[in-house]
Design a binder for these strands. Structure first.
Lengths: 337, 337
DNA sequence: TCGTAGCATGGAAGCGCTTCCACGGCAACA
DNA sequence: TGTTGCCGTGGAAGCGCTTCCATGCTACGA
C-alpha cells in the first residue's frame, strides 16, 4: 500500500535488467553514463522509492544508527536534548537514520529491545547511560558501538568526550582570576567518569595556583538541579566565594538557592557551570559555563561509528574535544579585577 | 556478522518446520502448546534474534514509527524534548521503535529523507512542525500520519492536542481571580493554530468575566524566550498587572525582563505560562503554568497512529486532552485574595 | 586476422522471514 | 464402519533488493 513502484518497474521502463537498474541507482561502477541517466530518469518519473527493508535484508546494512539515552535525561536535562539534537543532525547529514532508544530504569528489557530491534547498524551510547549495568551488555554485543562520554573503566570501546580535566581546571582558574580565594565544587554522580575527571580538574587548578584543596569544599551532587540547590545550602555557611558546578543544571540550582538566601552572585559568591545547556541569556544572573561543542562531539561520534560499521575500525582510542569558556554575569566581577 | 542464528536453526533444533517455528514464536494460533514451548525454548537456547529486515520485508510492517520534529525545537524548547521523550516511551511501550526525524529548514530534502527512509509504518508530526510547507507533502503521502497538535487548516488528518481555548481561558481566569484587572497576553507564532486558539481563550475569559478586551494588550510573540522578553518590555509601560504567555519559554523571557526592570512578580504583574516545560521548582519566582499531559498526549497519538497503521482507521477526528493548572509564585497573590 | 582483456549487461541466487495452501491424521458424527 | 471436518503441520512461494557470476561485446595489441 505504501509501496508499489519497485525496482523492477524502473528496470522495465528503462529497458534494462534489475541488476543494472540497481547498480545505476546506487552509483556502482560499471554502468554506461547514458544508461545510468535513463534509469535515474525512469526512477524519477515513476516516483520510485526503494524499499528499505529489502535493501537492508539484501545488503545487510540499514543505514540507521541507534542512540541510547536514559529516559529521564531527555526529559529533565537539556544535555540529553542537546546531544540528541546534535546526533540527529549528524546522522541525517551522513545519510543515516536515527533510532531513538530511551533507556528505562529496568535493565534487561532495554537491551533486549535494542538488540532485537536489530535493524540498526551501530549504536551510540550517551554518557549519561554509561554506568548502567546493561550498557555492558550492549557494548559486548557484536554491534559497532561508540560512546559519547568517557567510560569509567572500559577502554575497549571508543568514547568521544570533552577534555574534562583541563576544562574543569579552566573553569576553576577563571574563578581564581576573578578574585575568588575559596572555591568549592559541586560534583556530578561520582560513579561517572566525567564527574570524577571534573573534580580532578578542580584539584589541578588549585595545584597550578599553588593553593591547597579544602576537601570539605568538594560537595557531592548528582547532576540534578535539586542537588545543586542542596549543595549550595551547605556551602553558604562555609565561607566560599566561588563555586564550580559540574554541570549547568546544578549551577542553576545553586544560583536559585543563593538568590533566595540573599547571597549576591557574583559579588558574594561567583558561580560557573559546565555544559552550556542553560541558555546564557535570560537568566538572572546569566550563567558562566564551559560550553560543550555538541555538534562537533556528535559529528565525531557518528563518523567514528560509521567507520567501525564499515570495518575501517581503528583501535579504540578516546577522542577529546575542547569546550569553550563562556563568561556570564554569574562569575564576572568587574569590581575585583 | 551481527546476525547468525536464524529461524531455520531454531526450527531444526526443535524439530519443526520454518512455518511452525515462525507461528510459534509470533504467537499465531494453530500450534500445539507443547510444540510452542519447545520452539520458544530452542529459540532461547540459541539466543535467536529475528532479523527485523527480513521480517519487515516479508510482513510489510517494520514496527517502527517516525517522529518529525523541527531541528531547532528539540534544541531550544523543552517542549520538543518533552514530546520526544513521551513519544519514545509510548512507542517502546507498544513494542515499536522510534525513528527521529529532525526537520531542517530546507523543505524538500526532509520529506525526501523521511519517505525514502521508508522503513517506518507511520508518522507522528509534532505541532511545531505543522505549518511548514513540507508537512503537507508528508500528510499527503500515503503513509499513516497523526499530528501532535492542531493543524491550522486541514481536517483530513487526525491531531492530538490539548484543549487550547478552554485552557487558555482557565489561565486568564486564574489571573482575574488573583485580582488582576488588566491582563495582557503574549501570543505564539500566529500562523500556528495553537497560538490562535490560545488568544481565543484569552478573549473567552474576558467575555466570561464581563470584561472587554483591550486589543493593544495582545502582543505578538513567536514562542521563543526572547520574544517574551521583548513583549514584556512593551508591556511594562502599559499598566498591565497580569500576563498570560502562550508558552513557558515566553513567560520566562517576560519574567526575566520584569525582574531586571524592577517590576515585582507577582505583586506588580502576575505571570502565567503554558506547557509546563519550565521546571516549576528552582525558578525565582516559580512559574505558574498550564501543564500539558505529555505522556497522555503521546500515548493517544501513538495509539491512534497504530490504529491507522493496522487499518482500524476511524475517520479523522481531533483528540483533545486537558492540561492542568499549576499555580506557582509568579501568579499567587496571597495579599490580594 | 585472431586472441584476449576489459567493460557493460543480464541471469539468478539468495538475504531471513511470513503466510498461503495443501496434506495427513484424528475425533465426531451418521 | 465410512464420511465429514477440523486442527496442526510442512512445503514452498514470495517480499524487493543486492551481488556474484557468466555472457556478449568492443577494442586493443600482436
Amino acid at each position: 500500500m505504501t509501496q508499489q513502484v519497485t525496482l523492477e518497474d524502473v528496470a522495465r521502463l528503462s529497458g534494462v535488467s534489475l541488476a543494472t537498474a540497481s547498480r545505476a541507482l546506487n552509483g556502482r561502477p560499471g554502468v554506461r553514463d547514458d544508461v545510468r541517466l535513463r534509469v535515474s530518469e525512469a526512477s524519477g518519473r515513476l516516483g520510485f522509492r526503494p524499499n528499505r527493508a529489502a535493501r537492508n535484508l539484501a545488503s545487510g546494512r540499514s543505514q540507521v544508527i541507534g542512540l541510547v539515552i536514559p529516559s529521564a535525561e531527555l526529559r529533565v536535562d537539556p544535555y540529553g536534548a542537546s546531544i540528541t539534537h546534535a546526533v540527529g543532525r549528524a546522522a541525517t547529514g551522513r545519510d543515516h537514520g536515527l533510532m531513538l532508544h530511551l533507556a528505562a530504569e529496568e535493565p534487561g528489557d532495554t537491551v533486549h529491545h535494542i538488540l532485537r530491534d536489530g535493524l540498526i547498524d551501530g549504536l551510540l551510547i550517551s554518557t549519561v547511560a554509561i554506568g548502567h549495568p546493561w550498557v555492558e551488555e550492549l557494548v559486548d554485543a557484536r554491534l559497532p558501538t561508540v560512546l559519547i562520554g568517557t567510560h569509567p573503566t572500559r577502554h575497549d570501546v571508543t568514547g568521544v568526550d570533552v577534555e574534562n580535566v583541563e576544562s574543569a581546571a579552566t573553569a576553576v582558574t577563571h574563578l581564581f582570576e576573578q578574585g575568588c580565594v575559596r572555591v568549592a565544587t559541586i560534583t556530578g554522580r561520582i560513579e561517572r567518569a566525567d564527574a570524577r575527571l571534573r573534580v580532578e580538574g578542580y584539584r589541578l587548578a588549585h595545584r597550578r595556583a599553588g593553593r591547597v584543596v579544602d576537601e570539605s569544599l568538594i560537595v557531592p551532587g548528582d547532576f540534578g538541579r535539586r542537588s545543586g540547590s542542596v549543595a549550595a545550602h551547605r556551602l553558604i555557611a562555609s565561607g566560599v566565594d566561588g563555586v564550580f558546578a559540574a554541570n549547568d543544571e546544578m549551577a542553576q540550582g545553586a544560583l536559585w538557592t543563593f538568590t533566595r538566601a540573599g547571597v549576591r552572585v557574583p559579588d558574594d559568591i561567583a558561580v560557573i557551570g559546565f555544559d552550556g545547556t542553560a541558555l546564557e541569556e535570560f537568566m538572572d544572573p546569566t550563567l558562566s559555563t564551559m560550553s560543550q561543542p555538541f555538534d562537533d562531539i556528535a559529528a565525531a561520534a557518528v563518523d567514528e561509528l560509521l567507520a567501525r560499521i564499515s570495518g575501517r575500525a581503528p583501535r579504540p582510542a578516546p577522542i577529546q574535544l575542547s569546550p569553550e569558556l563562556l563568561i556570564g554575569e554569574s562569575s564576572r566581577r568587574s569590581s575585583l579585577r
